[in-house]
Write a protein that binds this DNA or RNA. Structure first.
Lengths: 204, 204
DNA sequence: CGGCCTCTTGAACATTCTCAAATTCGGTGG
DNA sequence: CCACCGAATTTGAGAATGTTCAAGAGGCCG
């Protein structure tokens, strides 16, 4: 599923420098040892790994979210992490021991809100789920690099064929404008139109 | 939707004693001020409240989980909380300021796992979702007090009619054994049979 | 250019939803 | 104790949404 760079990854999770991961690249496995991280850019997918090796989507971490902080308590990761888009992680907590528990508390409340958003992405009509995910991943300008159709399907609990149909439908309706972004797959980079812009387009 | 006791609830959230809530009773509203709590017994439902007053299921807190800890940072609750079953809450953190951030970190990782479980409850076949929720809520002996059909529907993103059909189907297949528990609705208290027990019953 | 993977599209099918109507449950008041 | 009421639950039949299986198109890399 993933692209592997030729760099030796094994030494990576123990360095204090920030790291970059390519699309689809595994970041760590469940049960492995390593640091906790903060997502600086991009989107990370977390999976629960059952005994028989099956992976099931568990959570999403986007810029600002904390990743794998359970290692600070248990010494190993609970979930498996992989890069849904190109992303960079930096070790957490930053610098010396945090002045207070407030930093942790802030991350906690942030994670709670993120979890509620993910719950919402698995409810309602298929179109709303995909649109919801696109909005969640869009930057302030509305630019989005979507994960693969299969990854979107795993997140929203739909099939990749359904995702494909709906992304195309959003394109045709003008809500998703195909926008070539740097070296990203043409089928995955978009700009989100505002509802107002779409209505104006239809009125024309 | 809820049953209200005659006790004045307004003074409650500011007392340091633990509190009990009846089925369906509101615990706090989004934006209100109050303490953080730990769930001692029962199940609490959290909802996001949109501007137009619509409530949408956001999360679940069961025995051991922390509730409303965002008040420690922001001074008010992010979500609305209500009791899905009879439940008791005790103020958190317990006693004096915690010795270390480890207590908070533990709650954090626990919340992460809970969130992953909730995500799983919104994927796959309807029957598996309902069964998954029943297993999540069951005690060690397999005794479960289910929330209302409508609440189960909100949690699993199904319709209450579907939930009703599936609970009946689980009853008929012998996976859910109607078991009268104290004063609980007869349609909501069950004992979960093990797969082995069900197979033995069918073989008979 | 060829191979491989992802994405797209179609048609039949399955599951779940919707709407409507009974029925049961629990509590209330006589 | 019994009749009654409102809320929750059950059940049915048809409709809608999403799935499945299959085939083809497109893009990326060596």
């Amino acid at each position: 599923m993933g692209l592997f760079s030729t760099v030796d990854r094994k030494s990576r999770p123990f360095s204090r420098a920030s790291h970059e991961y390519a699309v689809g690249e595994p970041i760590y496995h469940a049960g492995a040892e390593g640091l906790a991280w903060r997502v600086s850019q991009g989107v990370v997918r977390l999976d629960t790994c059952s005994a028989d090796g099956n992976r099931q989507f568990a959570s999403l971490a986007i810029a600002g979210d904390i990743l794998g902080c359970e290692t600070l308590l248990f010494g190993s990761y609970t979930f498996a992490a992989s890069a849904l888009t190109r992303c960079t992680l930096s070790p957490w907590p930053e610098g010396e021991p945090p002045a207070s528990g407030d930093s942790l508390l802030l991350s906690f409340t942030q994670a709670q809100r993120r979890a509620a958003e993910l719950i919402a992405l698995r409810g309602g009509q298929a179109l709303d789920r995909v649109l919801g995910l696109a909005r969640l991943l869009a930057d302030r300008a509305g630019c989005v690099v979507l994960p693969s159709r299969q990854d979107i399907a795993d997140i929203t609990d739909l099939r990749f064929e359904t995702i494909s149909r709906i992304v195309k439908q959003l394109e045709r309706s003008g809500l998703l404008l195909p926008t070539r972004i740097d070296g990203v797959h043409a089928t995955r980079s978009f700009r989100l139109a505002t509802i107002a812009a779409v209505d104006a387009g239809l009125a024309h």
